[in-house]
Design a protein around this nucleic acid. Structure first.
Lengths: 110, 110
DNA sequence: ATTTTATATCGTAATATTGCAATATAAATA
DNA sequence: TATTTATATTGCAATATTACGATATAAAAT
């Protein structure tokens, strides 16, 4: 065991889990916040922003990219990273949906 | 190594990561969706909804509870679970914030 | 052409997660 | 009180994640 039983869940559930999992690490939250803060794509510079080694940061960037939360374009010497909106909108939609639903049907119990 | 270096990140970053991580598994997405679907607290019944054993489901419920995404009240024989709004609003806010920010500052590059 | 700069990949140790059988707990019911 | 029902905990094997040193790659600058 140890492996997630993805087969038994819907594609949508697996997709949302992948997106959420990608953000399930403070370094990856920090990367997203940094990309947002600078208000543009960042070419270089990300490694210096984080308290982690270059290989570790590179790995975190790869995971965010695989999940579809950021994208990276080669820009000469360095790589230009920015937030990938479609991925972000997908997971945002999930929370929006839950929140909207809860707002309507409050006060059942608990 | 192997342990996350939480010390080097802000409390907010760690908090968001814990919330996201809790949803980083399809079974836990499925639990949230189920709680939402039935539109009320669920006393019993969750185990039968998932393709996993009772101990495994119990563990997933515990993780969602620890993260602050659901709450469970003992209701006689069984336990009543429902979504915990404050936790949900916190992570929803993160995505909302990013989305709003992106909407304003589009078209920089990439 | 060599060196520098920016990033990725490999290998590997430490730790965490996933899943379940077995077992424990505790209230409800017979 | 004994049994059933609902859920939690323990223990453990399989797998995944985290982190980083060493090394690779590839464009830019010297």
């Amino acid at each position: 065991m140890g492996a997630t039983k993805t087969d038994h869940f819907t594609e949508s559930q697996n997709e949302l889990a992948v997106l959420a999992k990608a953000l399930g690490h403070p370094a990856r939250i920090a990367i997203m916040e940094y990309l947002l803060k600078v208000d543009a794509c960042i070419c270089g510079d990300i490694v210096n922003e984080l308290p982690l080694s270059q290989p570790t940061v590179s790995q975190h960037l790869k995971e965010l990219k695989n999940a579809g939360l950021i994208k990276g374009n080669i820009e000469g010497n360095s790589i230009c990273y920015c937030i990938n909106e479609p991925g972000l909108e997908k997971i945002k939609g999930f929370f929006q949906h839950i929140s909207d639903h809860l707002a309507k049907k409050r006060s059942e119990c608990c």
